[in-house]
Nucleic acid binder design. Structure first.
Lengths: 131, 131
DNA sequence: CGGAATCCAAGATGATACTG
DNA sequence: CAGTATCATCTTGGATTCCG
């Protein structure tokens, strides 16, 4: 078992701060999708409205088809993104934020904008390349 | 070179939505640290106040020494976390949020709390395990 | 056009051992 | 206590190819 000392978190404490600190909290899963390298950008990119796969691909610099598809599936499965495929040829698929997705997206956008705004101070006195 | 078609983002567009969509935007670097698997939890864990290395280790379930150390270094380098080492034996090191760090931490906390609150709806109709 | 499948390189993470 | 170094592993991400 070699169980690590279990979190000393009291019940009230758990209620107050949530349970993300627990290793197997399901929130971590969603958090992982939302804060993933591409998840953040996909969510923010969808804020202006419905977009097609290739629109997103172009908009999000550097993303590969594979990652875009996977990220969209994660978010769709988390009910944050809606996917509508029209049965035409060539295929036409539209992605948009669900009401739920819009909420997270706005929060994530806020975070991103904060970083961009304060980037100057952050990079100010860097010593190492910091990876 | 095989250079991918450069982002077609117009100037005004860049100014409006920031430049995170550009593959080499430095914001992505910081974003990566802040939204990393452990970065999120470290920031939130530090909100209540100064803590020692082992405090954080215990608080954040599942994190390894290695990852905690590395994450703290990223955040310190990004000027989001302050590190104070007392020259005593055994070592005593304290970590805390900088004013800048506190701002991000609060935003991140908001995001985390939102997810925990809406977790029910998110997991509601899951079909796949969604990794 | 919008993927799915495959193969492979790079990076993240963990366990362990060692040190000031 | 607070790390660092090393090694093994698992995951992420990218390039390519193929398909409806």
């Amino acid at each position: 078992m070699t169980s690590r000392t279990p979190p000393r978190t009291s019940f009230s404490e758990m209620m107050r701060r949530g349970q993300v600190f627990s290793p197997d909290c399901p929130s971590r899963e969603v958090l992982k999708h939302v804060t993933s390298r591409w998840g953040v950008l996909v969510l923010v990119a969808l804020i202006p409205g419905t977009q097609r796969f290739s629109d997103l691909r172009r908009r999000i610099g550097g993303i590969s088809e594979r990652m875009l598809a996977q990220t969209l599936q994660w978010l769709e499965n988390d009910r944050l993104v809606d996917r509508v495929a029209y049965p035409v040829v060539p295929p036409h698929v539209e992605y948009s934020l669900t009401p739920l997705g819009r909420e997270v997206a706005l929060r994530v956008e806020g975070l991103v904008e904060w970083i961009e705004t304060n980037l100057g101070q952050i990079l100010a006195g860097r010593t190492t390349a910091a990876e």
